[in-house]
Design a protein around this nucleic acid. Sequence first.
DNA 1: TTTATTTACGAAACCGTTTTCGTGTACATC
DNA 2: GATGTACACGAAAACGGTTTCGTAAATAAA
Lengths: 335, 335
Amino acid sequence: MSITIRKIAKDLQLAVSTVSKALSDSYEISAETKRRVLEYAEKIDYVPNLYASTLKQRKSNNIAVVIPEVADSFFSAVINGIESVAQTKGYHVIVYLTHEDLKKEESILRDFRGGRVDGVLISVSGGAKRNSPIHDLSAKKFPLVFFDRACEEVEAAKVLTNDYESGYKATQHLIEKGCKKIAFLATAEDLEIINLRRKGYEDALRDHRLKSRREFILRCSNSEEDSYSLIHKMLCKKDRPDGIVGSIEKLTTLTYAICHDLKLKIPRDVKIIGFSNLPFASLLNPSLTTITQPAFEMGRTATILLFNILENKKGEVPNQRIILPSSLMERSSTK
Amino acid sequence: MSITIRKIAKDLQLAVSTVSKALSDSYEISAETKRRVLEYAEKIDYVPNLYASTLKQRKSNNIAVVIPEVADSFFSAVINGIESVAQTKGYHVIVYLTHEDLKKEESILRDFRGGRVDGVLISVSGGAKRNSPIHDLSAKKFPLVFFDRACEEVEAAKVLTNDYESGYKATQHLIEKGCKKIAFLATAEDLEIINLRRKGYEDALRDHRLKSRREFILRCSNSEEDSYSLIHKMLCKKDRPDGIVGSIEKLTTLTYAICHDLKLKIPRDVKIIGFSNLPFASLLNPSLTTITQPAFEMGRTATILLFNILENKKGEVPNQRIILPSSLMERSSTK
DNA sequence: TTTATTTACGAAACCGTTTTCGTGTACATC
DNA sequence: GATGTACACGAAAACGGTTTCGTAAATAAA
């Protein structure tokens, strides 16, 4: 007979319900009985079966984090933020990686209906979300919080940054440093945050009477090689940009590598500013001017929101929308 | 009535057992009945309750990854490796962060006894492991695989790198580049891999007739500020080292920052080699010579080992010990 | 025709908890 | 003495699946 609450009950001549209540410190049970139960449970090394109680209580104490990549300074900082609050709540964090693959994201989301997790924190991958299970979850009032990359058309709590402004400021910064031909590195997939950053970029150009050039807005692919050759091609041209806004970290470091390969001097030949949370942006050659997002804070805030929802299942928490501002850190790459 | 197997049974005038078997495509059920059940289940959007089946089958389809940090190029690459095989097996990866805190690690491990996960992949935090729950798990034959940082005294499968050799080679490299006074940055906590790397360092010094100096072996703390001041102090001295081996990534980048602050030129004033998996070590100022571990491969291999164990619960798989070699990537910081 | 065997399904036990609803005892209240 | 009320505990019904075992009918083998 394995070590269950039943065994304790039998050995101690008690009813299972009594043991169960004693273990959860119910007021119905006398101090003396509690002591006996606790002591004996300890002695025989009783460990409650997680799944039995989950089944009964309909609560897994798990939350899911769905992100594109983990090898990214932004997302790894976010995870730390998430974990910092989940841990205080006794919750477990299951990490799901989509690798920017929409199909994978959908299959992950579908799986959540089984109850493996009580809530979801998600930063979506690019692409259309028409018949995505994300709508199902939202429609079923499944506890859901978006962070950084949200689905505008889905009703849910959201923690975002001021992407439009950041795109604007980044571009303006380059303009102030004398750039006339500024390129913008975007992702291939349609992402709201990238669109906003690009909008900020375009508006900054317009406001400063610089013309916006189609060929300077690069829709890079998810494959590093493809992106490499795209950016490489642009930088090889006679009429190459003198300033670059990297809308995601990967593309920015990639551009650095390309400039190294092409013997282009940063910032003399090209100035670069990138959205990035690299803790050692200042150690790069040259140190990188960044738009730095409050990654840890975003993780923390999103998780707090999620727990607000979780703990108020009945109360119907309104779908908050929180904006945490990013900041521009000027370094040598735009000197 | 919520959507359960019982509802399907009632609506279709079948027994619950029939429905259950139909859903799991049992040979006992006729094709016609299966079709009816599947169709109806689809129609009413039936989703099986994960915990009910887990309770009965005693299998969670979760594996745990216990690591010190996620914001580290090595560990995030490992996670990718782990996830790449877990996904093909239909398993879910729960990430646990210890932040190098032994107490936290222990409480995490203790929790595993409840059955939340079917197996554990772990890279231990420093410190003594005398009465650690890790021994319990191992004693109970709980599926367990160590990677990178193992507990030597615990019987379990292990995936490691050639730390002794790497420490030796790194030091030898500095010696060949003309360094006479080589420092070694270690962690405060006792870690087997760090000890091995240090042993390699010491042996290399001895083999090349260089004296080993106590004050050049720095036991850095877990706190960045403390480590900063420790390294800073060493580098401020007249008699400072002309070469540094960073045994972990964090300490290496930290040393870079300190050198910048102190206006020490790398590699002219100090040469630096670090254990690191930074994808852009070559973009640092100056580019960093590294000992690079096969991080993704380690994650992959460890997970494959774990599944070997999981899938052979009866067969008692022997505790393998796999060594994946690291490689020295020479760059400018040791020119 | 009688006896096996196969096929397709049902009844009920089971996994290990939690929770609801009693119930008997002791003590206080009227 | 009858009634009310804490108190401490027990019996049994959940939770939603899986699994075992039994059985009626159909088919095959004797």
